[in-house]
Structures are given as structure tokens and as C-alpha cells.
Amino acid sequence: MSQFSRLVRIARTDFSYFFRTKWLMAVLISLSLSDMLVVGLVYTRLIPASTAIGSSYFQFLVPGIVVVGLFSAATDTGRRIWLALREGVIQYYLTLPIRTRGLVGAYIISGGLGGIVYSGALLIIAYLSLILFKAPIPIQGILYALILIPFLFVLSTGIAGLAAFFASVSRRGEMYWVYAQALQVSMVTISTVFYPAQTIAQYLPAPIATIAEYNPLSLAAGVLRNSAFGGNALETSALASLLATSLPLATIGALAYWIILRTIRLKGKP
């Protein structure tokens, strides 16, 4: 069996672990669905469509929910890595005939898969909701959403990489949760996931508005709004920016995780 096949098997096993954590799934799904189907639909009737949000509030909010879903699912990689490090499963992995970099790759890919599968499911639910409420869906939008999958996958691996980094540097479980929450608050808050760029520019200092603009979550939410829900053609520059901001995150995370595995080989513990 090739190294690649083994990498795929480990990624698949770790990926399935995400969906086996039923309590986590229940929390995530209930939060995402209540945001989408309660907050989204109710607020849509309260907030009129405007140029600031470009369309109905539902179509503005749902891409944000999809991106946050992707973020939550991808950061679960960190929890799984932390558990594997502390419960010794990582030592079992280290006895398998796969190179250390293969093991790192498997975790990052599985994080990417978790994010894309979970956010993909939310996207489907969003489209079904639009059909249910007789709102217009641009057919090209669905096609654009399919084209976006690999780009969202890279974003998801980037976030998984960041989570891997925090899991690797966390000595205690509660510290990992602190880091994960800090990451979520900073990345989601300083972004255009839930607010239009103009609003951020209006109320926050210019540097923060710039960070929000180039935050990969903002870029992903923007592309989804513009193309998957707006039906406008995909912009190459936006996709390139998404890749350019996601790949370094994946690289940093992979490197941090690789260093931890190397430390285990030298010291016997992370």
C-alpha cells in the first residue's frame, strides 16, 4: 500500500471521528439551523433589502452562517489532535507505516473535509429553504457553489491548520478551548461575515477594516454572497485572495503539528 493510500485512510478515520461526536454535532447543527431558519427568516421580514447588503437579509446572512459552520467544523480538528496527543492515540499513529509528514497531511486534509462537508450541508439546506419560501435562486449560483468547493476546502484546511497549531501548543484542555474561542471571536468579529464592509469601515478604525476585508472568512462569505447566492460570475481576484490567505494558515498549522510530533519522538511527550 502506498504512503498516499495510508494518508487517505488516516484522514478518513479522523474525518469520521468528527461526525461520531454526537453531542458536538447536535450543538453545531442546532446553532446553525436556528441561526439560518429562525434568525435568518425572521430578520429578513424585519430588515428590508438594501444596497448595503445587496439582497435580502437571508441571502446576506446565510453565506455567513455557512462560513462560520465551515470554521467550527474545521477547528474541531484541533480538538481531535489535542485528544489524540493527550490520550496517546498519537503514539499509536506513530507506529503505523506512514511518514510523519503523511500523518500531518492526513489531519489537515481531514479538517478540510470536515469543514467542507458540514458547510456543504448547510449550503444545501439554505438552497432548500429558499425554494421552500419561494425566494429566487439563481441556477448559475448552484454551479458557482460547486466550483467554489475546492477553494472552500483550502480555506477549511487553513483553519484546521490554525486549530492544529493551537492544539499543539496547549498544555491543558481548557487552554485549547480558550485559544479556539479567542480564534473564533477574533476571526469572526473582525470580518464581514455578519456585517457589511461599509458598516465596519464606518464604525471601526481603518486598520481593523482592512484586516476584516482580507480575512479569509470575509473573502469566502463575500464570494458566496456574490456568486453562490447572487448569481454573479466568480471573480478570479477574490478566489486568488482566498487561496493566498488560506494557504499560509494551513502551512503554519502543519508545521506546528509536525514540530510537536518530532518533539514526541525526542522527548516522549508533546
Binding site: Q3, T13, Y17, R20, T21, L83, E87, G88, V89, Q91, Y92, T95, L96, P97, I98, R99
Partner: peptide, 21 residues
């Protein structure tokens, strides 16, 4: 190391497994 891992197997002192499998 990878070649060694292909020919050896270990049963750890503390059992290690995927908790939800």
C-alpha cells in the same frame, strides 16, 4: 523508521484506540 514500522507491531501497556470506534 517507516520500513521498520512495516515489519513490527506493538501492543501498548496502556491501550490506545479511537474512543468512538
Amino acid at each position: 523508521g517507516t520500513k521498520v514500522r512495516e515489519v513490527m507491531g506493538i501492543a501498548f501497556q496502556e491501550a490506545r484506540g479511537f474512543w468512538r470506534h
